[in-house]
Every structure is written in C-alpha cells, then in structure tokens.
Amino acid sequence: MSTSADAILSARGLTKEFFGFKAVNNVDLDVREGTIHALIGPNGAGKTTVFNLLTKFLTPTEGRIVFRGKDITGVKPADVARLGLVRSFQISAVFPHLTVLDNVRVALQRKAHLGTQFWRSNRLLDRLNDEAHDLIEAVGLAAFAAHDAAELPYGRKRALEIATTLALDPPVLLFDEPMAGMGVEDIGRISDLIRRIAKGRTVVMVEHNLNVVSDLCDRVTVLARGEILAEGDYEEVSSNARVREAYMGSEDG
C-alpha cells in the first residue's frame, strides 16, 4: 500500500457494502499530519460511513487503513484509541452528575496509570488536579470547574467532552459533526477551540456547516454516492462544478 509521505492517516481502496449496496466505494484518502481535514458531502454521500471506517466503528468490506505506518484495518476501536487515533464525543465519557473537574480527572486516570475506578482516594486523584485545571482552562471552562456537567449549556458540554478527549493527549482527533445543534455563539466558541487545540495535532472532522469548513479546514474531501468527488482546499472544491451540482438543493457553499 503506497501512501503519501506526510500522511499520518491513510486509506486505500476503502469499501463498505451493506446487503449488496456499496455505501463507500474504493476511497483513497491521505490525511496530512498537522492539518485540519474535513469530510463533507450532501446527505447520503457516505462521509459518516468513511468516518466510522477510519475510527474502526465499522469494518471495511475491502481496503486498508494505515495510521502512522501501521496497518490498523483489523484493529479494534479501543486499541486504535490507545494508539492515538481518538474519536471525540463517542469515546469521551462525560458524567452528568460529576463536576467538570471530576470529569476531567476521571479521563486523566488512564494516562496516569491509576485505572478508572471511582473509589480511588482523593489523595491519589489530587495528583491530577494541576493537569486537569490546565485542560479545563484550555477549553474555556475555568469558571465552571465546580459545576456539575448536567448544569452546563450545550456548547459548554461539548467543550467538556473535548477536554476529556484531550486528557488522552491524542496526536489525531476525529470530530463527528462537532457543531451539530449549536447556536451561532457556540459555533464560534467551539470553532476557536478546535483551532487552538489543532496546533501540534491532526484533526479530521465531518461537518455540515460549510462556513465552519471554509474557516477552519486546510484540506477538504468531498464525497458523493460513496466516492470521492473532489479534494483540495476549500476554495478549490467550492469552485468545482461537480461539487456545486452535488450540493444543489441541499447546501449553499
């Protein structure tokens, strides 16, 4: 399998078939290290299926996936996460009746080799406080550290989920529609947060909001009917006649 030299995550011939229907057909993809890479496309394009294949929540019918030079096609999702390919909002655990601080401390336990048992003593968990507060501040939740997660507005909960994911210190973060259901203010806040945390990391995201994609992403892969329609920076793909035709009637770029 030949991959781009600067790719941290690659797929070749990625295909997923459901009962004879090819939801994804022969997709080749290279995600360059240190970039924010978006997967976009109209409804039914196959972008979520590709995302689920990359994060190992689905097994490909055909094709190969390589992460940091290692073939991960047959690797389980939890093991892929341990390698540093972490899917936010699905893998991160936010407990509504724990405080923001305690949520982040729980997420830090694995990295600190403390396991994830809730009966760890406060003395042991207090060793994680400085790092937890740093993460909480990084996602803009310093004023909410003592609040229960259930009390947070929707956008702030998303920020907490990102903090718990960052606790694993992953080199690659994958976001599945991170702006879904958000108002304008929250979209701006989470966009700024993703931009900040992407420094020194690679981000892959499925996103419907094309304003977010144009503002955030270095590279964009457009999918339609399970195949790659176009790829490049946002200006390139948004001016592509085939992309405009695929989006006609569903989204305005």
Rank of each mutant, 00 (worst) to 15 (best):
Ser92Gly: 15
Ile36Arg: 10
Gly63Phe: 02
Asp28Ala: 01
Leu58Arg: 07
Thr116Glu: 14
Ala143Thr: 08
Thr164Val: 14
Tyr234Lys: 02
Ala11Leu: 11
Lys56Arg: 15
Gly69Met: 06
Glu177Asn: 01
Pro178Glu: 12
Ala45Trp: 00
Glu33Leu: 08
Pro178Ser: 13
Ser214Glu: 14
Ala93Met: 12
Lys199Gly: 04
Asp28Val: 00
Gly253Ser: 07
Ala93Ser: 14
Gly188Glu: 14
Pro178Asn: 13
Glu231Ile: 00
Asp176Asn: 10
Gln90Tyr: 11
Ser214Ala: 15
Val100Pro: 02
Ser4His: 14
Thr73Glu: 11
Gln117His: 13
Ser239Lys: 13
Met1Cys: 08
Val94Asp: 05
Val243Ile: 08
Ala132Phe: 10
Phe175Val: 10
Thr202Gly: 00
Asn240His: 05
Gly69Asp: 05
His208Arg: 05
Met182Ile: 10
Lys76Cys: 06
Asn129Cys: 12
Val203Gly: 03
Ala81Gln: 04
Gly41Phe: 09
Gly44Pro: 01
Trp119Asn: 13
Asp126Val: 07
Asp176Phe: 13
Glu207Lys: 06
Pro42Tyr: 01
Val27Phe: 03
Val27Ser: 11
Gly188Cys: 01
Ser92Asn: 15
Val184Lys: 09
Leu166Ile: 11
Ala138Met: 13
Val94Leu: 04
Gly63Asn: 04
Val75Asp: 05
Ala143Pro: 00
Ala132Met: 13
Glu33Tyr: 03
Val86Trp: 06
Asp186Val: 11
Ala23Glu: 01
Thr73Phe: 08
Gly226Leu: 00
Pro153Tyr: 03
Val206Gly: 09
Glu185Cys: 01
Pro42Val: 01
Glu137Pro: 11
Gly155Tyr: 03
Ser4Gly: 13
Leu210Val: 04
Met248Lys: 01
Lys157Thr: 04
Leu141Thr: 07
Phe57Asp: 14
Gly188Gln: 12
Pro42Cys: 05
Phe118Cys: 06
Glu227Lys: 14
Pro96Gln: 07
Val24Gln: 02
Thr61Cys: 07
Cys217Glu: 07
Ser238Phe: 00
Leu114Glu: 10
Thr55Ser: 15
Ser2Gln: 13
Leu141Arg: 05
His97Met: 13
Leu174Glu: 10
His133Ala: 14
Glu227Tyr: 03
Lys157Met: 09
His37Ala: 02
Val204Ser: 07
Val75Ser: 03
His97Glu: 15
Asn43Arg: 06
Tyr154Leu: 12
Ala5Asp: 14
Val106Ala: 15
Ser214Thr: 08
Leu101Lys: 15
Thr35Pro: 01
